[in-house]
């Protein structure tokens, strides 16, 4: 059994470190100069008072709507990590997945003209690594 990214919302302090960690883990190539942070795949919605948050990230659903609706099988589960990955070379950018995800966890990057979603960072999700309150954890 692969490890699982586990969310415990009651521990979230709404600091949004996960969003920064995610953006820096998914850099995009700039036309000139070093790569820039990409778009975040995770959102932590602040709830206050008291200072808290609710992280929302792809659940890698067993019956994933995004993968089901894709006409070119560009969204496929990675057997190693369990993540549903976007195979960009197969994508025709119809964005059916964006509209189909009931949780809003598939986005469209208008600059790269490419859909994007959580890829579990290849099995080592950086949001969990940098979460200071263990609201996001990578558990066995």
């Amino acid at each position: 059994m692969a490890k699982r990214l586990t969310v415990t919302p009651s521990r979230c302090i709404g600091c949004r470190t996960c969003e920064i960690a995610c953006a820096f883990s998914h850099p995009v190539g700039a036309p000139a100069g070093p790569p820039l942070p990409g778009l975040t795949r995770i959102r932590a919605f602040p709830v206050r008072p008291p200072e808290r948050g609710i992280p929302v990230v792809c659940l890698q659903c067993d019956q994933a709507a995004c993968a089901k609706v894709c006409p070119t099988a560009a969204l496929q589960r990675d057997d190693q990590t369990g993540a549903i990955l976007v195979h960009e070379e197969r994508c025709i950018r119809c964005r059916a997945c964006v509209w189909a995800c009931p949780w809003g966890n598939v986005g469209f990057d208008g600059v790269r003209t490419q859909v994007y979603k959580c890829d579990l960072c290849g099995g080592d999700p950086q949001c969990a690594r940098y979460c200071p309150s263990r609201a996001l954890e990578q558990l066995d």
Binding site: P9, I54, W99, C101, P102, W103, G104
Partner: peptide, 22 residues
């Protein structure tokens, strides 16, 4: 089922989770 923008959908998800965890 397809009409909401992904930002609002996520926010709705967060509210749903908030209800679940109290």
């Amino acid at each position: 089922s397809f009409g909401a923008c992904e930002r609002c959908r996520r926010e709705q998800a967060s509210r749903l989770f908030l209800d679940l965890v109290g």
